[in-house]
Design a binder for these strands. Structure first.
Lengths: 178, 178
DNA sequence: AAAGATTGACGGTTCAATCTTC
DNA sequence: GAAGATTGAACCGTCAATCTTT
């Protein structure tokens, strides 16, 4: 307890920590605060307007972009940044409200798939408008075009440093054909 | 469903939503994914190395920066971006592990204050090293100096648009005197 | 009655254990 | 035995109701 213990040090090159009053930390605070408040707001608006949480919206979005509007549970879990049991529960809820249906995987009987229903697609379409308007108003509008590309580059580099485990760069769209 | 419906539109000027395949949405995805993964990683490292969650760390940090190392529950709740009951529970945990103590407010008997203990300060100091190293490695290092200021500016503008309700720009430091 | 804080009930996520299928 | 998915227990956060003090 009293001695150092020197933390696990998970990666290779150890960067020395910034001083606690390093002015660069202002960017850090702005980054996390903006993100936290923003997600909260978008979730509230989505919930109020369509009774859908941001996580549910995101899951449905992943489904609609997948071939056949269906996805294995585990890949869905990865894309939504949720644990396997987390995605089971979320799909439980979506299924209960008729947004998705579960089916067994033909090639591998131990796998389950979730498929977006027509009702789910309809709901997703409606929610999409609300969501994208929010992104426009609270994200794209406030930050300029110049800063936007800087943010994109910064995000990409951070993700790179964290290791690109899950995260496919899934689109934010609903395919026009669907 | 077929007509406009035009969502609640909580604020004034309504921004038209971007097309679902608008390339600018790449910045949005990068922003939220990077943030989510980053917070998760920092929380894991903090928890593994010092048995402290990121929320607990943040709360202790707010306390140590306050005069007398103590703060009213409600202002602590605001600074940590938590509800009043949420902060009650979090302080419960911190008190149970001896990091803080509760005391009544002298000027207003219906208010409670949380004060950081010496043990809490010690723990915070240790955790601080881990945390700041993480911020350096996963945030400051990957993004360059140029992009950092763009991110800071972007964050500030987003917060501005969301309305500056809570959020004091609390420092990220442990005052040397403490 | 209003404000500060706490409590109970609940929703949502995770970990560990379990079950089924490969 | 390993992988995919689900279940039960526990944890953390919020909302609504409650209690105390002003």
């Amino acid at each position: 307890m009293s001695t150092m213990a020197t933390a696990p040090a998970p990666a290779a090159a150890l960067a020395q920590a910034p001083a606690p009053d390093d002015p660069r930390l202002g960017a850090w605070r702005a980054f996390i605060h903006a993100n936290a408040r923003l997600l909260r707001r978008l979730d509230e608006e989505l919930q109020a307007a369509h009774g859908v949480s941001l996580a549910e919206y995101d899951a449905m979005l992943q489904l609609v972009n997948a071939p056949g509007r269906r996805l294995r549970m585990s890949v869905l879990a990865d894309r939504v940044l949720l644990s396997r049991s987390g995605i089971t529960r979320l799909v439980d809820r979506l299924e209960a409200s008729g947004m998705v249906v579960r089916s067994a995987c033909v090639t591998d009987a131990r796998g389950a798939e979730a498929a977006l229903t027509d009702r789910g697609l309809e709901r997703l379409r409606a929610a999409s408008r609300t969501h994208l308007e929010g992104v426009q108003r609270y994200f794209l509008d406030p930050i300029g075009d110049e800063d936007r590309s800087a943010v994109e580059r910064a995000g990409a580099r951070i993700l790179d440093e964290l290791g690109r485990d899950p995260l496919g760069d899934a689109a934010c769209d609903i395919p026009a054909g669907a």
